[in-house]
Design a protein around this nucleic acid. Structure first.
Lengths: 380, 380
DNA sequence: CCTACGTTTGAATCCAGGC
DNA sequence: GGCCTGGATTCAAACGTAG
């Protein structure tokens, strides 16, 4: 089944990820989640964010925790039936999501203790590989009125890859670290609930959707695990927070929503979103994605001459540069990395940061010469 | 099957809870968890704390950036053939625990994303009724050394009653609130991992148990959900943290541990514990949480928009805010601190006080926005 | 005695690309 | 697909030693 491409929103990334031609980009598909997912092409989506519903019976219990109602579901068989139905539903949509995910794609699901254990177990049973569970801590949760439990001040997100052997998933580690006081990002996030002007209201002034998620939460997810131009699928689109944030951050979205009223709210909301300036969202190149430079190229260009003696920063070890870009340590010859490792008696070593050349102003680390080569290649 | 009562430890509560005559109070039962639980009388235990195997599935070894090897939890007791084997084990011990719990009793289980979804699902399937999931946030978790995931900075506890119709369980709401600056106790707890003098060491100076839990965590559990004189059962006793804290806080314990060496460590540890004076058994005040704010949180909350141009107080330097909370200075991207340092050609810089936003009434220092975030968080 | 600095360590499912 | 190798990657807290 083919969809006509919505040409309005184009990938603005210089990386230009491959977009599947049959994806209904930047649109809300109205219909049953599983039926609509079945129409989407396999291996076409970079990221999935899912905020699935609770089991209805559980939701009723949660809203009215008085004893008479609790007594009514004191039937183990009845409970099993309801959990079982929820599990079947969960497996069905998880299976479809797994089909449409690219091999490098990942899934985020959010839930509370009512359903997240079912979802997590189903994920694992279907072969997904959990990368993290993440806790959304709410600055302003609803208090516990009766004082019989802890205030429910968090929800749980699960981040998972398609399988244990999945490689190459997107995780914008360096950007996240730079935005977090230069500390690596943790699995606990502190974010306010959605309220105030961000909360969609109907004509009656009441909230348009009961469980609207804050844009800050979706922004954290998309900035963590997607690139500009990526396709983000939300099978439970609701009020369209995923779409609004995707548009703002230069990602494509595909939304599925059963309720026409919710979908209408979502469409109007997204239409009003102004995308961020291109410069504010382009991907900063991560160090691990920088162009590879061979040490032989450094030697070939005469930046380091054959015969040069290299030392570590404290002068404990010493090796000699050979014309072919290898190092010699006594009679042992190998790469800058292998010789660095052997010199220290270790398994591994990054030769670029370990070895130095003694210059007129002191030691110069090899990495500086690599940067010179990279700059030359960029200019050339 | 009857056990002789250990008369040394007596309930010192004025409430004098009924103690079952066949309980082996304040003792460690050595043997298989399920077999030992089967010997205990039904409906005799007030609280269960369980720290079951996590079923970690570690691939190769893991090294820190300095190449040192991480001491992994690779013990045989943590290995299971499959998820279904783990599930069967989980159901078996949960079933026995449910049998020995009093009608008013509750269960706490701790786990990580490797196992907690299995445990939570099994709980629900067996008819337990979840009261809360609680997040133990670690002040000092082990970092993620490869930068490929979020730092795993928390573990999850599930607090559950025997069933949906359970009434009269213990929750010391007033004491918890009084100990928390008169705020309701929340479902996220900030507690350091067990290290330093509290960590049990063998004669060789190495840790006696790979996963010893902090006493502060157990104290929070026991003070929340038990009374002095209550019986606390731990089916995976390990290094005996539950027993040590129970004795200190005037609760009885029953421990089950398969490993004789662990049990010996636990017994010696508990023997050395001095119980608190009766008057002192109150809730310890919660640790004040660090008010560290990330610049990404300022951007996420819309206080500073992506694309905003920042300047220093004299307008000499200029940088652009990006959606992920980093700054761009020409083609260089980094944290507010790094970019501030690079702009000035210095080693370091406090970006919060260096950078300003040009507003209608002049420059506004970034620090002002940080204060806004702190105020929001405090209000929550 | 205190301060400074280096070393060690913690429940972890921790790489990607080329041949 | 399997093997090999280049080379990227860490934070808080406790403890030991030097000065």
């Amino acid at each position: 089944m083919a969809y006509r491409r919505n040409g309005a929103a184009l990938a603005r990334s210089t990386e230009a990820p491959a977009l599947h031609p049959d994806l209904p980009l930047d649109r809300i598909l109205i219909g049953d989640c599983i039926a609509e997912l079945e129409k989407l092409p396999a291996a076409s989506v970079d990221l999935v964010f899912a905020d699935p519903p609770y089991n209805l019976q559980l939701q009723g219990d949660l809203r009215r925790p008085d004893q008479s109602l609790v007594d009514a579901v004191d039937d183990a068989w009845d409970q099993f039936e309801s959990f079982s139905a929820y599990d079947a539903f969960t497996r069905a949509w998880l299976l479809q999501v797994r089909r449409v995910l690219k091999p490098t794609g990942t899934l985020w699901v959010i839930g509370s203790y009512h359903n997240i254990f079912r979802v997590g177990s189903a994920l694992q049973d279907l072969g997904y590989w959990i990368l993290n569970d993440v806790v959304w801590r709410k600055t302003n949760p609803m208090p516990n009125f009766r004082g019989r439990r802890f205030t429910n001040a968090h929800e749980t997100l699960i981040w998972a890859a398609r399988g244990a052997d999945s490689k190459g998933y997107t995780f914008n580690y360096e950007a996240l670290k730079a935005g977090n006081e230069d500390l690596q990002p943790r699995s606990d996030w502190l974010i306010p609930i959605c309220s105030g002007g961000e909360r969609l209201k109907g004509d009656d002034g009441k909230k348009a959707h009961p469980t609207q998620k804050p844009e800050a939460l979706l922004a954290r997810v998309l900035l963590s695990a997607s690139k500009p131009g990526d396709v983000v699928l939300d099978p439970f689109f609701g009020s369209g927070t995923t779409g609004a944030v995707a548009k703002r951050l230069g990602r494509h979205f595909v939304g599925v929503e059963r309720d026409r009223e919710y979908a209408a709210y979502a469409k109007a909301r997204i239409d009003a979103v102004e995308p961020e300036a291109h410069e504010a969202i382009v991907q900063a190149p991560a160090k691990r994605e920088a162009a590879r430079v061979a040490f032989s190229a450094v030697v070939e260009r005469g930046l380091v001459k054959p015969g040069t003696r290299l030392v570590d920063d404290r002068g404990r070890y010493e090796a000699t540069v050979r014309a072919d870009g290898t190092l010699a340590l006594g009679s042992v010859v190998g790469s800058i990395h292998r010789i660095g490792a052997i010199a220290q008696g270790r398994e591994a070593c990054n030769g670029w940061t370990f070895w130095h050349v003694a210059g007129p102003k002191g030691l110069v680390v090899l990495d500086a010469f690599r940067e010179t080569v990279r700059a030359e290649e960029k200019a050339g």
